[in-house]
Computed example of a mutant assay.
Amino acid sequence: MSCLFGFDVGTKVVGVAVGNRLTGTARALAAVPVRDGEPDWQTLDALRREWLPAELVVGLPLDNDGKEQPMTRTARRFAERVAERYALPVALTDERMSSQEAARRFAAGRAAGTRKRSDAKSIDAEAAAVILESYLVQA
């Protein structure tokens, strides 16, 4: 029951990460496409069945002043939908700077030779891992 999912919600891709409350760690899992405003629910359903998370964490995009912006509504809507679909608790957490940290990690991996340019599509999943790690530190 210590498994959690983290989500970085975007208009084209939803990044998914898996984390563990006991270890306080998270890792990128998948970048799920969004089409016509809808995430690929079949892929999300399959990930849920495989990992059986007990809780979901959705990154809440706020502007630099901590105020809501248009993407905030998109993330809130996604959070409502996954809560209803999976009947699991959903936490919303400030995701400011998660994309920058994910990009920094990706660049460091490229410099170390552990990441390839073709891995760039997984940066959204890495952002979800950053969101989930931030949540776990606060919890």
Rank of each mutant, 00 (worst) to 15 (best):
V82T: 05
A79C: 04
R21T: 03
R49Y: 11
K12A: 10
R104F: 12
A125H: 05
L60P: 02
G109K: 10
R48T: 13
E50S: 10
L22R: 15
D65K: 11
L56M: 07
R73N: 07
R117Y: 14
M1S: 08
G19Y: 03
G113T: 12
M1L: 11
A26Q: 02
T74S: 09
V82Y: 01
Q42P: 09
A129L: 08
V57M: 04
V130Q: 13
I131N: 10
T114I: 08
V9S: 02
P33E: 00
T25H: 04
L4I: 09
Y86A: 06
R76L: 07
S98V: 07
D36I: 04
R85G: 04
K121Y: 14
R35F: 10
L29M: 00
V137Q: 15
E55W: 07
M1W: 07
T93C: 11
D94I: 07
G19Q: 00
P53N: 07
V13W: 03
R110G: 09
L44H: 00
D36E: 13
P33K: 04
L62C: 00
V16W: 00
Q100G: 11
G24L: 00
P61Q: 08
R104Q: 14
R104I: 08
L29A: 01
I123R: 14
R27T: 14
P70L: 10
P89D: 12
L62F: 08
R77H: 12
L52Y: 11
L56D: 00
A31R: 01
V58Q: 03
D65R: 13
D124S: 12
R96P: 15
F78L: 00
S99M: 08
P53E: 09
T72L: 09
A31S: 04
E101V: 12
T93H: 10
E126Q: 15
A46L: 07
S98T: 12
R117C: 11
L4A: 05
G59I: 11
L44V: 08
A103H: 11
R117S: 15
A79V: 03
I131A: 10
D8L: 04
K121Q: 15
A30F: 02
A108D: 13
R21S: 06
P33W: 05
A28N: 02
A75Q: 06
E38S: 00
R85A: 06
R77K: 11
D36L: 04
V137I: 14
A30I: 02
L88N: 05
R73K: 13
G37E: 09
D124V: 12
E126W: 07
S118Y: 08
A102D: 05
F5N: 03
V34Q: 00
G109F: 13
Q42N: 14
V58N: 02
V13T: 13
L52W: 10
S134T: 11
V14P: 02
G10R: 02
F7N: 00
K116G: 14
R104V: 08
P61W: 10
V58W: 03
R35L: 10
S99T: 15
V32W: 03
E84Q: 13
A107Y: 13
A111T: 13
G66D: 04
L132C: 13
A26D: 01
